[in-house]
Structures are given as C-alpha cells and as structure tokens.
Design a protein around this nucleic acid. Structure first.
Lengths: 334, 334
DNA sequence: GAATCTTACCAAAACGTTTTGGAAAATTAT
DNA sequence: ATAATTTTCCAAAACGTTTTGGTAAGATTC
C-alpha cells in the first residue's frame, strides 16, 4: 500500500489541498509549511499516484514509441540507440517512454488507436517515416501530437528532424574515387522510406556532380541477412561493383559478410560504407566507414518539439536539421 | 476528446454499469445487449480510459524494464532483443512495457521507487542480475513483484529463468580442441554478474573435465570497445592464447577486431567464440561461433511467471531452465 | 476602530472507470 | 394465483489526485 496524499496530510494535520499545492509549488502556501510538507513527503516516500493525477489532469506524461511493423522484430540496433536517446531526454523531464511492437492479432493501427483513446500516452515519436505514411495521416487527422524523424511527403505539417547529408555524401563519394574505386552501387531499402529516398538522392546527386556514370541500384529489406543475400547475388554478376554504399549500417554488415565470402579484401578490392554510425560499426572487419548521425541531438530535438507541442506552444511544422559526420575507416581503404 | 463509457451508454440508453459489464464479459447481461454494446463501442472507437481503470482497479497493466545503469547507454544489442521478446509476450496479454534508463539526477533506485509508489507499473523484469543485487533486495523487501533473468545468490526467492550451459560449453571446448586450439582464454565481464559467474564456471569446469591446464582469465566491461582494448593487450603478451571464449557476443565483436588488428586470421590462427547468439553475429567476419540463447522462450517464461505472480497464483520461486544452442561458425574453424 | 487587502489555508467537485449491493421484470415452481 | 427463482439491469460509492472557489485570520490603510 503506497503512501497517499491523505497519509501525508493526516500526519501534518493539513488538508490534502495544501499538501498538493505545497508540492506543486503554488505560492499560496507559507514557506515554512511548504518545507515541512516537502520534507515529510520525501521521508514518507510519497509519490503521487499517476493514475489519479492523469485522470484529473488529463495528461499521461508518457510518450509512446511503436516499433514500425516493417521490422518484424525490433532488435535493430538502430532502434535501441534511438530509444536510448529518447529515454534519456524524456526522463530528464519526468516523462516516461512506453514501448511496444504491434502483434499479429492487434494490428499496428489498432495499437496507436488504443493508446490514444485510452489516454495511455500524450503523444508519439515516429521513426522510419515513409513517403506517404498512414501514421502521419492518422495522427494528424485525429489531432494527436507527434514528432517524427523524417518528414513524409504528404504535405502534412508536423515537427520533425531532418538529416541533411548532401554535402557529406559528396565527400564520401570523392573519398571513394580518390581511393581508386569507380563502379559504385547503392544498396538500398524499401523504396518509400524517407531514409532510402534521401540517401539514394544524395548518392545520385554526388555521382552526377562528379560526372560519374550512374551506379547500380539494388534493393533489400534493410536487414543484415537480406543485404547479405542481395549483395551475394550482385557480386556474382558479370560486372560487379567495387564500392557498395549502403543505406544503413546494418545493411552494410550483410554486405561485408557477402564480400568476404566472395574472397574480396574489403578496403582494397571493394569498398563498403554504411550510414547511421552504430556503436559496433567501429569493430567490424574491417571497421566500417559510415556517416554517423548525432543521435543525442536528434532525440533531444524530437522530444523538445513534441513537448512544446503538448504545451500548445508549438510552431506547427518546425523542422530541425542535423548533419551527420563522415567517419572514414578501413572498409573504404582508410 | 476520446469517447467515454458515458457516450456509449447514452447512445444505447443503458447505464454505464451495464456497458462496463457487457464489455468485461460478465454473465449478468443479456446476450443481445452485449452484442449491441460491443458493436457500438467498437464503432464509436471506445477504449476505456486507462487512468480511470487503473485508479479503480489498482492495477496498471504495465510492466517496467529499467536498463541497468551498469550499461551507460542501453544500446546493447542484447537489450533490444530481450525487450523485443518481452514486448511480444506482453502485448499478447494486453500489457504494456514501460522502459527507462536511470538518469544522473534521479538515480536508478529512485526510479524503481517512483514507478512503484506512483503505481505506474505492476511489476518489473530484471536482467543482468548480480551476485548480490540491491534490486532483488529492494523489490522483495517492498513486496513488489518481479521476475529476473538469472538468480542472485542472496537466497531471496523469486521467479527466474536460468540459462544452463554446462554441457554445451563442454562441447564448445571439445570442438576447439578438435580444431587444434589449446591455449584457451576467457574474456569475461564484471565479476559479480551472474552471467559472468556462470559462464566462467562452465569454462573452468570444461577445462577441468578435459584435463586441460587452467586458461587465462581477463576482465572487461562487456562492451565491444572495452573488450577490444583488453584483447589487444592480451595478444601482445609473450604467450598469447589461441582461443578466446567471450562472455557474450558483444565482447566477441571487440575481440574479433583486436585479433584482426594483430594480423591474425580468425578461425585459423585464433579461435573466437561468443555467447547469446545475437542476430548480427552470423554476419561478422568470420561469422561468430556462439551459444545462442532462446530469447523468445526466455521472454515467454519471464512474462508468464511475472503475470502469474501478479495474479497471486505464483509458486514463490519458480525457476525455468533454458538451454542454449551451440552455433558453430567459421570463427572457430568451422 | 472600521474597512480593505493579504496571507494561508481548506471543502468539495471533478476526472472515467469498476464494483457492490440491490431492484424490477420475467420466468419457473408450487 | 402466489411464491420462489432467475434474468437483466442500474444507482451510488470508490479509487487518489488537482483545481475551483471560497473563508478566516492577520496585516495594512484610512
């Protein structure tokens, strides 16, 4: 039986009103009383019952993150790093993070719906946004606050973080050319993912700007295993590429594996680069060249924008731009 | 404004009691009425307000998972796979998973306390359990339900999952010997982690049983980078080992990196094995031999035991034993 | 010393459910 | 036809907060 506000009030011979207001920092309670209340509450281990507070305040002080069902299992390292960032930011502000992945019975849509309608969460963070994203449509139609990593192309305004890598991608491609690689291929993901769209665009632009012939483009499901299989096939083709630019690090893991299996020395016979800058990418063999996105910065921006929106002080469609950093490692010849 | 039970009741000219009971499947409501209620509620998009329900029922229908602060950032791939399993299991039963990592301001202990006292969660899942674990002490002292992956040595009873790998570890060591490796080293983690204790024990036992001389033991922080540094040092010693048995896969990633950097061909000059069986471990260079733990089975058992405990139908200290599977890959010579 | 203003407190309502303890209506038994 | 039972429904209380709209006492002003 956790201590309630009544317990605290009774102990001090005060009304629960006064205790509540003392703890919430209202100025209509005497300083001496406040101190007493705060100290006693602390000593008694009182923490306001969240259900009661939520019910009264109509706020959950909780943010939802639903793993996009595209990734059957959410063990993608990227998600962990992402959630880690969100968790850090949120707990700083006394918010909590509710996490789930859609099951087969209850669809993903139903889960969003349930969390919103049951007021389990105040808002959502979106990730792996798509060109036309039903989540964006759905949430904005229902007036549910959210912020996203990436902006859909629906023209619907919402606060988002955009990764801008045109310049740094050009540097990456220049670096590859410098190292003597010339037959570039892009190992991409599902065509309507904003990540894929942007990164492919930067790839193409870089080729164009450097007047290189258009590269080979292949598609995977963005898992390491999917990429492994696709790249295996690619390397068996008559004129295989000698540089693989992967849509993300995990895809690059699969590509590395495939290259090794084909007896290639990565960094010499073939170059492989990723995107995201996962922790473990510095320990692959050889260490992976990648464009590291500033995860804490992204999480910070998303949380801040979302919380601003919850307080009603949001500019409709704020967009924060972050720049990845080029980490050149041995997988592209150092 | 989400629809409330009042809205549904009004629409049907029923009392909220009847609506509530109809939806909850009580048998004191006519079948015809129930059908009507269910259909209408569904159509109106009604979902019970969780705060109100919690307040009344005194249950949160939410389980907490707090990333142990030993791992500064919870981007360990293991956690993602673990949480993935928990999420799957929980959402099947309409429970949710609340996740957080302790911040610097609010310590880990305070976070457990707050979640419990504010009744945000009904119970906890523990992971990375230690020999003497304050969390076990704390939670059991306060009568807060929890289940853990690994059992502390405090003699405190609680439902747990135990990984039992004595036999399979013996097989692993035999396999290494067969392949001609003989100077075995154990790349371990913090000494009081149950994982470390068990796995080290199996390592030692296997050596003893096969009458091998005691191996080299080193300690890391169980991060890939920590292991990388430690193994670099180890390999520079006068008589370096030729087989590294790592306490987990992530440690093995660092070991792989170190071995490559020393110009060794992994699988021929040196063998490296992990433990856990992370997804990406099949794509390292060379693919990593590991003992794969059955994550879904573990998650299932933990969730089931915890929920049983929440329903008061728990045998105090149930223990489910799971067996990992030996995945032999190229990193130990295939 | 009366009127006004501040300060410090509090009673009661409200948030949206679930559950308790009936009660009316319909059915069956006598 | 009446009594007993079953079926179907409901009013009201409770869960633990926050917030509204006060009031009494003390301080200040005239």
């Amino acid at each position: 039986m956790p201590t309630t506000i009544h317990d605290v009030a009774k102990k001090l011979n005060l009304s629960i009103t006064t205790v509540s207001r003392a703890l919430d920092g209202y100025d209509d309670v005497a300083d001496s009383t406040r101190k007493l209340v705060v100290v006693t509450a602390q000593k008694m281990g009182y923490a306001p019952n969240r259900a009661a507070r939520q019910l009264r305040r109509q706020k959950a002080e909780t943010i939802g993150f639903i793993i996009p069902s595209i990734s059957k299992h959410f063990n993608e390292p990227f998600f962990t790093e992402f959630m880690s960032g969100l968790g850090d930011e949120l707990s700083k502000r006394n918010f909590d993070l509710l996490v789930s992945n859609a099951t087969e019975d209850e669809g993903e849509r139903a889960l969003y719906h349930r969390w919103v309608n049951s007021q389990k969460v105040d808002g959502f963070i979106l990730n792996r946004v798509r060109r036309h994203d039903w989540r964006v449509e759905y949430l904005s139609e229902w007036g549910i606050p959210f912020a996203g990593l990436g902006r859909s192309h629906d023209g619907i305004p919402y606060p988002s973080v955009r990764i801008e890598a045109a310049d740094v991608y050009l540097n990456l491609v220049r670096h590859l050319i410098d190292r003597g690689f010339s037959r570039l291929a892009f190992i991409g993901g599902p065509a309507d993912l904003i990540n894929q769209i942007d990164r492919l665009k930067w790839f193409k632009n870089a080729l164009k700007k450097l007047k290189l012939e258009p590269g080979n483009l292949i598609t995977t499901d963005m898992s390491s295993t999917g990429a492994y299989e696709a790249v295996c096939a690619l390397l068996s083709s008559p004129t295989p590429p000698d540089a693989l630019l992967c849509v993300n690090d995990q895809t690059a893991y699969g590509a590395l594996h495939a290259a090794h299996e084909h007896g290639l020395t990565v960094g010499r016979d073939i170059a492989i680069a990723g995107f995201d800058g996962l922790r473990d990418s510095s320990h692959t063999e050889p260490p992976l060249t990648t464009l590291a996105v500033p995860m804490p910065e992204i999480a910070h921006a998303l949380v801040q924008m979302l919380l601003k929106k919850l307080n009603g002080e949001a500019s409709e469609a704020e967009e924060v731009v972050v720049l990845p950093e080029l980490c050149i490692r041995a997988s592209t010849g150092g």
